[in-house]
């Protein structure tokens, strides 16, 4: 009984699938799907390397500090770093006192309550606080940015394919819309309020170029702050915010794999040993 029923069921599925296939193929031939500007002009992130790449990668702390400076002086005006606490910055090589000063002098204060009146108030940051967001909430953020929401950057480097390179490419990828694109897709003209960037998924980005000119940030360590350098530094910094335990992970991984390798070789020898003389 099972097999005749199975046979009929199988025929049924195969028939419907082939019917779907033929219908789809006919539609595809008679009405090929229109090409889109995103499909043709979107670019994969540029090739760029960071000190943290690879299984032995470590952070370049000088670079992270520079990247933090770029975040603080440029990005933090609109983008939050919700998952990162001031105390985490000690990882970048700042001392306790420096972290405390950074927290205290942060442009946005930490929301709190007035202890006398209970009214909403703000207070100075402490190392234990998460880095305060520039806007009180999403509505405020949208209202200040032409209805576009500047996303939180804490995890950006993991929330995009090839995140570090993506951020770098996006920051250095602003350009005029190619004439080629407008010729083929006249409807795809970038609206006046948006900015063309081929590294962004739909090509048109609400954020104006944040790193506009060389020297926008004056680096404490004297590194020349070209747009390219600033973009690279802030990307490295955001790789750190997304995966602060990366170095620990790499170091632990090497130790664990070394141990496992020896243990597995021993297990293999032991296995051969026990089976010695037993044909199988």
């Amino acid at each position: 009984m099972v097999r005749p029923i199975a046979f009929l069921a199988g025929l049924g599925f195969v028939f419907v699938l082939l019917f779907s296939l033929v219908t789809g193929a006919v539609a595809y031939i008679s009405e090929p799907p229109a090409k889109t500007a995103e499909h043709e002009f979107h670019l994969h992130p540029k090739e760029v390397s960071f000190a943290s790449d690879g299984p032995l990668g470590k952070f370049d702390r000088q670079q992270l500090q520079r990247g933090f400076q770029v975040y603080k002086e440029v990005c933090s005006a609109c983008h939050s770093l919700h998952q990162v606490a001031f105390r985490d910055l000690k990882d970048l090589g700042f001392t306790d006192a420096e972290v405390k000063a950074i927290a205290k002098n942060w442009a946005t204060e930490v929301p709190s309550i007035n202890p006398e009146t209970g009214e909403p108030a703000t207070r100075k940051g402490t190392p234990a606080d998460k880095i305060p967001a520039p806007y009180a909430n999403e509505v405020a953020a949208r209202a200040a940015n032409n209805n576009a929401l500047p996303p939180d950057l804490s995890l950006m480097a993991k929330a995009r394919h090839d995140g570090g390179a993506y951020i770098y490419s996006l920051l250095t990828g602003y350009q005029d819309q190619p004439a080629e694109l407008l010729k083929h897709f006249p409807d795809a003209k970038t609206p006046a309020s948006l900015h063309y960037n081929p590294y962004f998924a739909n090509l048109n980005l609400a954020m104006p170029p944040p790193l506009a000119a060389d020297g926008q940030v004056t680096y404490a360590d004297g590194t020349k702050s070209t747009v390219d350098q600033m973009a690279k530094d802030v990307s490295a910094f955001l790789i750190w915010t997304a995966e602060p335990k990366l170095e620990k992970r790499h170091a632990t991984g090497i130790a664990v794999l070394g141990f496992l390798l020896i243990a597995t070789i021993l297990a293999y020898l032991s296995y051969r040993n026990i089976w010695a003389g037993i044909k199988h």
């Binding site: 141990f259 496992l260 020896i262 243990a263 021993l266 297990a267 020898l269 032991s270 040993n273």
Partner: peptide
């Protein structure tokens, strides 16, 4: 010795 070493490694791990 090898069997013992393998089991010890597993135990330490």
């Amino acid at each position: 010795f090898i069997n013992l070493a393998a089991v010890s490694f597993a135990g330490v791990g």
